[in-house]
Design a protein around this nucleic acid. Structure first.
Lengths: 130, 130
DNA sequence: ATCATTGTATTAAGTGATTAATACAATAAT
DNA sequence: ATTATTGTATTAATCACTTAATACAATGAT
């Protein structure tokens, strides 16, 4: 696995975002057991304490739960996962729009840029499928 | 002025982003003198050293220059400012699209979310104009 | 000429994130 | 029963960011 972290932000915050992304996109499914703290630490090449800190946050927001010696699991509440996905999507969209308006990009231009970016990504994906 | 900083990221990096935004949206115009390090530090309620660090970075990327005791100025190269704006817009768009695809949002849904967000922002702006 | 303001530099201290090295308790596997 | 693995907790050390308190040199304003 491995991962390139952004040096400008604490790793545990980036891990939270990564784990939430895994849950939102279905890589980690409802009720599924996730890797142990120690294995995740090996995968991401960070200290187990740093992984632990991120996972505790996942529990605090109800996305995971741990059984002392059995392991850690994703919430079995599928609706909670659906909500997570929708909230992440809306938050990211709002942040994006606010940032674009802050640098004085017009509405039509914002939509055009997104459309153009999606088109170029699509071509990339097609190439990868060959 | 004042500002609420994100605790998850170094302030000097956030200042760089803020200053670049000022240049991109025209709040700080080409050739214009900008406030002194000490005044900016007061405005943003941070240490002068932190402002200095951000401004040095602005110089390193050619967006500003300083005259030892006269003050600091925005680049007089308007094209460089135009390029900054375009690059910021494209980078933010690419980051946004990649993040949305990471949480498995379809292309049409991405565009719909942006459109819906723009619509709601527009209503807000209209209300503010009364 | 004098003084205030400018960018710049230096040193020290404090804070938070991270790593490191352990240790403990509970359960599953053997 | 024994062993390995699990989440969890603790303590110390390191590093980067930030603040703080200065100081210096050059220029504009008076």
């Amino acid at each position: 696995m491995s991962y390139k972290f952004d040096e400008s932000q604490p790793i545990y915050l980036q891990l939270i975002e990564i784990f939430k992304t895994y849950i939102a996109n279905g890589a980690w499914k409802a009720g599924e057991k996730i890797e142990s703290v120690r294995n995740l630490a090996l995968d991401f090449a960070v200290n187990p304490n740093t992984v632990q800190r991120a996972l505790v946050e996942l529990e605090n927001i109800g996305l995971a739960y741990s059984q002392r010696t059995t392991g850690r699991f994703i919430t079995q509440n599928q609706e909670k996962i659906n909500n997570l996905k929708h909230e992440m999507a809306e938050n990211k969209t709002r942040d994006f729009v606010i940032q674009m308006q802050a640098i004085d990009i017009e509405q039509r231009e914002i939509l055009d840029l997104v459309q153009r970016c999606l088109d170029s990504e699509e071509i990339t994906n097609q190439q990868e499928n060959h």
